[in-house]
Simulated assay, not measured.
Amino acid sequence: MASVQLSELVDFSQKSLLISAVSIAFNPTFWNIIARQEYHNKVLTRLFGGKSQTACYFLAATIFSLGIVRDLLYERALRHQPSHPLLETKEVTYFGFALLALGNLLVVSSTWQLGITGTFLGDYFGILMDDIVTGFPFNVTDAPMYYGSTMSFLGSALVYAKPAGLLVTVFVLFVYLVALRFENPFTAGIYAKRDAERAAVSKSDTKKTR
């Protein structure tokens, strides 16, 4: 059996593939930079006259819109890529649709659990959750939005029967894992600070009642 080169499976000359990859990397980079600027300097809150919730909703709409653009660019890139016979089977197509359904379930259910502000970085605006969400899908994975999105990318690659989509999915997972390494410790620090302040207030109140 003749060996197959990666260049035969993926058409790297298509600019749409590069544009899709740039969009994938740009989105989490953008919202992490903006969110940290908000946390440290209240950039968006000041822009919206001190209304942190309005500013958070604006960022949510921006992130959501960028996600739609990213998905459209990914679909466009797949259409410009060669298909492969091994992926053009009913079984692979059905599995692709199953991944799309499960991925979207993780994304939608996590948004339902967290709400708009909880999903779209409300923590950085000072809009904190009262308690840690432990129900589905957070009892399955601690990052259902990211893993659900990755599953959707993979599902689309299989439905379209495009090897390039498999390569892009690996890149998506890498980008999200890097983002998590920055986001998780920072978010944990926000809540640790909140808990420390609550403990200090509680301790002060206890002293006053003595």
Rank of each mutant, 00 (worst) to 15 (best):
L166S: 09
G50W: 00
G67V: 03
G122Y: 03
L78Q: 03
V178S: 09
P185A: 01
T45V: 02
T54R: 13
L100C: 13
I116A: 15
V43K: 14
R79M: 12
D123R: 07
T141C: 03
L17I: 06
L166P: 05
L66E: 06
L9I: 07
I24V: 08
N27P: 02
W112S: 08
L18C: 09
T209I: 13
G115Y: 08
S152W: 10
D130E: 14
K203D: 14
L47D: 07
V172K: 04
P28D: 13
D195Q: 04
L73W: 11
R70Q: 15
L105V: 09
I33W: 08
T134S: 09
D131M: 11
S65Y: 14
A2H: 10
E197I: 09
K90E: 15
G103Y: 00
T93L: 04
S16M: 07
Y191C: 02
F153S: 05
F125S: 05
D205I: 08
L106I: 10
P137L: 10
F125I: 07
I34G: 07
M129Q: 15
P82Q: 00
Q5A: 15
K90G: 14
V168I: 09
F171E: 06
A21Y: 10
M129F: 10
P28R: 11
P144R: 00
A101S: 10
A101Y: 02
K51A: 14
V69S: 04
N104K: 02
G155Q: 01
L72H: 01
G189H: 10
E183Q: 05
L9A: 03
S65G: 09
A25M: 08
A188I: 06
W112M: 13
L6I: 11
T89K: 01
L114H: 04
V159D: 06
G96L: 01
Q53G: 09
F174I: 11
S149A: 14
I19T: 05
A35F: 09
R181T: 15
F182L: 12
N104C: 12
F58G: 06
N104G: 15
V201S: 11
G49C: 07
Y124K: 05
L102Q: 05
S110T: 02
F120D: 00
P163S: 02
R76T: 15
I34T: 02
N104M: 11
A196Q: 10
P85M: 03
G155T: 10
P185T: 01
K42Q: 12
W112C: 07
T54G: 13
Y39P: 00
S3N: 12
R70S: 14
V4H: 06
L180G: 02
Q5E: 15
A199Q: 07
T187V: 15
L166F: 03
T93M: 04
I132L: 12
L9S: 03
